[in-house]
Amino acid sequence: MAHAALLLKLARIYEHTAPGHLGQASRVANYKSGTVVIHADNGAVAVKLRQMAPTLAREFSNRGVECSGVQVKVQALEISDHSKAPVQRLLPARAGRELAELAHEMRPSPLREAIETLLARSAKAE
């Protein structure tokens, strides 16, 4: 079986075996010498997966993949969206006027402050 096809098969098995929250925060990264390598997004996920390693290895073996063990490494995904400047959304003029009137009529409160902050940060559509 070609390496890419084997990795795809391992990923499918892992997807059905790992608990949802752990599966979403990790992925099959490699397979070498009978060991499945899994990358976890953070240390907490890695710890849980290391505890599950014998169960995962057994499941891979039961589904036809020669697996002598599972190795878990922390390998956080690089997320480039965090470095992008936030997009300023347009606030329709009518909504802006109505929110301004509402805030003006309110007593000082956290809600009033939130509305005023929203108005200050939003671009007005004319």
Rank of each mutant, 00 (worst) to 15 (best):
V74F: 05
A85E: 15
S33R: 15
Y31I: 09
K124L: 12
P110V: 15
R27P: 00
G64D: 10
S80L: 13
G64P: 02
F60N: 01
A25T: 02
M52T: 02
E113Y: 03
E15A: 09
V47H: 10
V74R: 00
M52D: 06
V45Q: 00
E113M: 10
G96N: 03
P19V: 15
V47Y: 08
V70E: 04
K32D: 14
L8K: 05
A123R: 11
V45D: 01
G23K: 02
Q51L: 11
G43K: 05
H82M: 04
A4G: 07
A11K: 05
G23Y: 08
E66F: 11
G23M: 08
G43V: 09
S109Q: 15
N42S: 12
S61T: 15
V36G: 02
I115M: 10
L49Y: 05
I13D: 02
E66S: 08
G64Y: 11
L119D: 06
V72I: 14
E98W: 04
A46E: 10
E113H: 07
K9D: 08
V28P: 00
A29W: 01
E98M: 07
D41H: 03
L99C: 04
L7D: 07
R50K: 15
E98C: 03
Q75R: 13
G20R: 11
R63W: 08
M52G: 01
H82P: 00
P108I: 14
S109N: 14
L91G: 01
S33C: 04
V36M: 08
G96W: 05
H39M: 06
A44Y: 13
A18V: 14
E98K: 02
A93F: 12
K84Y: 10
N42T: 07
Q75S: 14
A85Q: 10
G43E: 14
S122P: 01
H82I: 09
I115Y: 03
E113C: 06
E105F: 03
R58W: 11
R121V: 12
E113T: 12
E78P: 00
L8G: 01
L99E: 04
H39Q: 11
E15C: 03
N42H: 15
S68I: 13
A29S: 05
S122T: 08
L6F: 09
S26T: 08
V28C: 04
I38M: 01
A18E: 09
L22M: 11
A53L: 08
K9A: 09
S80V: 11
A5Y: 08
A100I: 01
L56G: 01
P110W: 12
G69Q: 06
E66W: 05
T35C: 08
E78T: 13
H39C: 06
A114P: 03
S83A: 11
T35A: 12
K73A: 10
D81W: 12
T17H: 07
L118V: 13
R89H: 06
P108C: 13
L111K: 06
A76H: 09
L99A: 07
Y14W: 14
T17D: 07
A93D: 06
T17E: 14
